[in-house]
Nucleic acid binder design. Structure first.
Length: 676
DNA sequence: GGGCCGTACTG
DNA sequence: CAGTACG
DNA sequence: GCCC
């Protein structure tokens, strides 16, 4: 998994050992924190082994591949917080160089990033692939459990799996759970439950903040709960904050007392009627229409109870819309920009790691999604969590998560995470499963075949071309894109697309459109106002973008629909692209929609996924089927399960996203408000 | 104990 | 079809 | 995992 940063990514995984090992590396050394003499020696060795040393300058040199510094403070001192936070480069500690020299090979930089790694290097940052269920604030990237220097140094694995990975994975999980339970029991018996951390840990803390990933954690992690001295005197204040926060989220304590804050009975406030704010829809979302839909939904629910029709989530969605007025989905968002994920960085980091492991190694999407939603709730808090009780009653935070939070607040981590991270199989599965195109099942197969390391996968013949590309650009793809670069690339695509097709509309959706400071990828959504000029554009656009060396590799090339007239007429392309002047690959998607589907496509491709799911559930409760092509009156055919609903003929016409929200009786959310 | 979004491509 | 992907 |  040795990636030669930017020099020649094509050789990403085959950097030669020893001689010339730093070929293609263009490093900047930020002085300080370590003897200048040692730095000089390192520079010479780097150059001797094929690397280049660049002048630091005031701005991070564009051609640089690695920025080396003793720690984050020096980095920020040199370049300022903004540059450092937005840099997609490898901002690593000198430990990376030292260890690479020691091992005679170019090590993956991730474990040495000064923006998350603790000095040990075993608590580096997460690859946190930008697969679906992942809150894409830059702050919540989980930690990593691979890329420890030692892991990279292992010899090739023997191909003799004793048991199937499937079984051993289950066992790994059970071990982790058992351990967690044991530790918890011990703590309870010894009364050693630590509920501390009311204050920042000393004066240096704000300077030590990391831009994008949270501190390292774990045994010698940088993050630990602060001292609890002021805990008691702070309590009243914190309690008030918590209560306010919950109220802001639309969660109201019923009959709580100050002492019983941990036992509040919470309920979601009914949405307030604000229909007047919403202009009446011209074509299918009128009050009358809605009444009809609502009545139909109630009927469906009642009938469903008798006939095995949908229950559960659907019913919950129905409760939500079963009030007058428009539903406000911002219930877990702290108003007025008071949310501060930084406050709970350590907590978020651990939860993020668990979320990633459950998804990428275990394929437990449900559990992972639960963590994801809980993370989102914690990110939206405006106070520092000092006691698990503060989270009791918040949406998506249940018993198990409270236990985990208790662990983290006490020790900085949780036994189950430690157990998982120390399990070599889990580490391997997580690594494989983090490759684009490789999911948990394939990861297990590869593991069972005897593979243990990423670079070995290159040769495996059963990999698809896309998976091979995913392996090759494993590290590239995980580097986040600074917002301003995404904006430039959006403009570039707009320019090229307009040359090919005047009048074409090009928007970058996804986390970019939701206003995030960094993006995992680019989601380009296109349409043409005249309703037909978009046809056949995508292949030409991609070809042109390849000509100018912007789009570089394909991952998925959809069949050309819009040329003929068969399907929905939506063209799709997934691939990789390069920010001009740099070799680093980023994920980029293109979706070209006919004008009448564009609002649905844009909504879907702006996300986030939680919003998409919720809107679809809400639509279901109103007997509507929502997808990225349209919104269709649902027709429950006799004897069909809910999953077998056929679409009515015509979509409810929606020209804008507002139309969709209005039809569903959901309060309109600006893109930046869609980070649910 | 059951539900948890809906769709599209690959092999 | 299962697996993986996208938000 | 959470929620009903």
């Amino acid at each position: 998994m040795v990636r030669k940063a930017q020099g020649s990514p094509a050789k990403a995984l085959t950097a030669p050992a020893g001689h010339g090992m730093f070929e293609g590396v263009r490093a900047v050394f930020v002085e300080g924190g370590i003897l200048g003499k040692r730095i000089e020696i390192w520079k010479k060795r780097l150059i001797g082994l094929g690397g280049q040393v660049l002048d630091p300058g005031k701005r991070i040199p564009r051609e640089a591949t690695h920025i080396l510094a003793a720690d984050a403070e020096r980095l920020i001192k040199q370049y300022g917080r903004e540059q450092v936070e937005e840099s997609p480069l490898f901002l690593v500690s000198f430990g990376w160089l030292e260890e690479s020299l020691a091992q005679g090979k170019l090590l993956p930089p991730n474990a040495y990033r000064v923006f998350s790694s603790s000095r040990s290097g075993s608590a580096g940052r997460s690859p946190a692939r930008s697969r679906s269920a992942s809150p894409d604030t830059a702050q919540s990237r989980g930690g990593n459990l691979l890329e420890s220097p030692t892991a990279s140094a292992q010899p090739p694995a023997p191909k003799t799996p004793a048991t199937s990975a499937q079984k051993r994975l289950r066992e790994a999980h059970e071990r982790a759970e058992d351990l967690a339970a044991e530790v918890r029991e011990d703590n309870e018996q010894s009364g050693a439950v630590a509920l501390v951390g009311a204050e920042d840990e000393g004066g240096e803390s704000s300077e030590r903040r990391e831009g994008e990933g949270g501190q390292g954690f774990g045994l010698q992690g940088d993050w630990r709960p602060g001292g609890g001295d002021k805990q008691l005197e702070k309590w009243g204040e914190v309690r008030n904050d918590v209560t306010k926060e919950k109220e802001a989220m639309g969660i109201r304590p019923l009959g709580s007392t100050a002492e019983a804050i941990g036992r509040e009975v919470m309920r979601i406030e009914p949405p307030r009627g604000n229909a007047t704010e919403q202009p009446t829809h011209s074509g299918g979302g009128s009050d009358e229409d809605h009444e009809i839909l609502l009545r139909a939904a109630k009927r469906a629910r009642i009938e469903g109870a008798d006939s095995g029709k949908p229950q559960g989530g659907l019913e919950r969605a129905l409760v939500e819309v079963n009030e007058e007025g428009f539903l406000d989905l911002r219930e877990n968002q702290t108003p007025a920009g008071m949310a501060n994920p930084e406050l709970n960085r350590g907590l978020l980091k651990v939860l993020g790691e668990l979320k990633d492991i459950y998804r990428d190694a275990f394929g437990d999407d449900r559990r992972s999604f639960s963590y994801y939603k809980a993370i989102s709730v914690v990110e939206n808090l405006s106070f520092k969590v000092t006691s698990a009780e503060q989270l009791k009653g918040l949406p998506s935070i249940g018993r198990s998560l409270l236990d985990v939070v208790r662990d983290i607040l006490g020790t900085g981590t949780t036994p189950r995470l430690l157990a998982l991270k120390n399990d070599p199989m889990v580490r391997a599965l997580f690594e494989f499963g983090s490759v684009w195109g490789i999911g948990p099942v394939t990861a297990r197969k590869l593991y069972d075949m005897g593979y243990r390391k990423l670079e070995e996968l290159e040769k495996e013949p059963s990999l698809t071309q896309a998976q091979r590309t995913g392996v090759k650009f494993f590290y590239d793809i995980q580097q986040r894109i600074p917002r301003h670069e995404a904006a430039e690339m959006e403009a570039l695509v707009q320019r090229v697309a307009t040359e090919l097709c005047p009048g074409i509309e090009v928007l970058c959706g996804g986390s970019y459109r939701r206003g995030k400071a960094t993006c995992g990828d680019m989601d380009m959504v296109l349409t043409h106002p005249d309703g037909h000029s978009h046809k056949g554009l995508l292949p030409k656009l991609v070809a042109r973008l390849k000509e100018i060396d912007f789009v570089t590799e394909d991952l998925l090339v959809g069949p050309s629909h819009s040329a003929d007239d068969s399907d929905h007429g939506v063209d799709t392309y997934f691939g990789l692209c390069k920010y001009p002047g740099r070799e680093l690959r980023h994920r980029i998607d293109f979706k070209v929609y006919p004008r009448d589907q564009h609002a649905f496509g844009l909504l879907a491709w702006t996300g986030n996924d939680v919003l998409n799911r919720r809107l679809r559930l809400i639509a279901s409760a109103q007997q509507l089927h929502l997808n990225d092509h349209g919104m269709y009156p649902a027709i429950y055919r006799e004897g069909d399960s809910v999953h077998n609903v056929s679409r009515g003929s015509e979509s409810v016409p929606c020209y804008t996203e507002r139309d969709i929200f209005r039809t569903l009786r959901v309060k309109y959310l600006e893109p930046k408000e869609r980070n649910l």
